[in-house]
């Protein structure tokens, strides 16, 4: 019951910023939220539950993004706010002004992962030496997705063009010279068909899974 009430309250306060919720047990609540709504969520919890106890923040380097798990305890229930940030942003908003106990763990995250913690009240080193190299953070992995190097061009081509062997000017000329249409009747010859294909790819989260950047039309880690 307690878990259900907490979820109801958070849904009411955050609206669409709550993405997914689950309560596997009455004393355990997971709330996936938009990263931009992190402070709003913590403020809402603090407002409703003045006895809110901050536990810790777990940070997971997932290759393409960071997963932040802010754990709280209230009235016998453990609440985890889960948010995800693309690795390129490399930012975490500090909540130390709302829950001062977050101060040290945020410093630890900044040091071990090389993540910039915004608006932290007093950012300085905690574990590593002051002269520790910026680009050699102990818990940070390189920006990397699930695809091995050999599969990257194939995936890029499949997602952006719907075809694994992009046509070259040379082949276009040779096809025309051989009396064939310049290009076969592929989807990429028609804007509507490409909209359809891209819609499907986004809907099944294929592009998200492999880390495809729609603006640059390439993988984020090639």
């Amino acid at each position: 019951m307690r878990a259900k009430k907490i979820i109801e309250y958070m849904r009411q306060e955050l609206g669409p910023d709550v993405l997914v919720v689950s309560a596997p047990r009455d004393r355990r609540v997971f709330i996936n939220i938009r990263a931009e709504a992190l402070r709003k969520a913590v403020e809402a919890l603090k407002r409703k539950y003045p006895a809110l106890r901050f536990m810790t923040i777990s940070t997971v380097d997932c290759g393409l993004h960071f997963e932040f798990l802010h754990h709280f305890h209230v009235d016998g229930v453990v609440i985890t706010l889960r948010s995800v940030k693309p690795k390129e942003e490399n930012l975490l908003e500090s909540i130390a002004d709302i829950v001062p106990a977050a101060n040290f763990i945020e410093r630890e995250i900044a040091e071990l992962f090389g993540i910039k913690v915004m608006n932290h009240p007093k950012m300085r080193s905690l574990i590593l030496t002051e002269d520790w190299a910026e680009d050699k953070r102990p818990l940070r992995k390189p920006l990397r997705g699930i695809l091995p190097p050999q599969a990257r061009r194939v995936a890029e081509s499949l997602i952006s063009m719907g075809c694994v062997a992009p046509i070259s000017r040379f082949i276009e000329r040779r096809r025309e010279a051989a009396g064939l249409p310049k290009t076969p009747p592929f989807a990429f010859t028609d804007e509507e068909n490409m909209k359809e294909l891209h819609g499907i790819i986004k809907e099944v989260s294929l592009s998200e899974k492999v880390g495809f950047d729609w603006e640059k039309k390439r993988l984020r880690y090639r």
């Binding site: 695809l147 599969a151 194939v154 995936a155 499949l158 719907g162 075809c163 694994v164 076969p184 009747p185 592929f186 989807a187 028609d190 068909n193 294909l197």
Partner: peptide, 13 residues
Amino acid sequence: DLKGYTCCPEPVF
């Protein structure tokens, strides 16, 4: 000709 077709898609990756 199958107009508007895409890669089958490629069977391995």
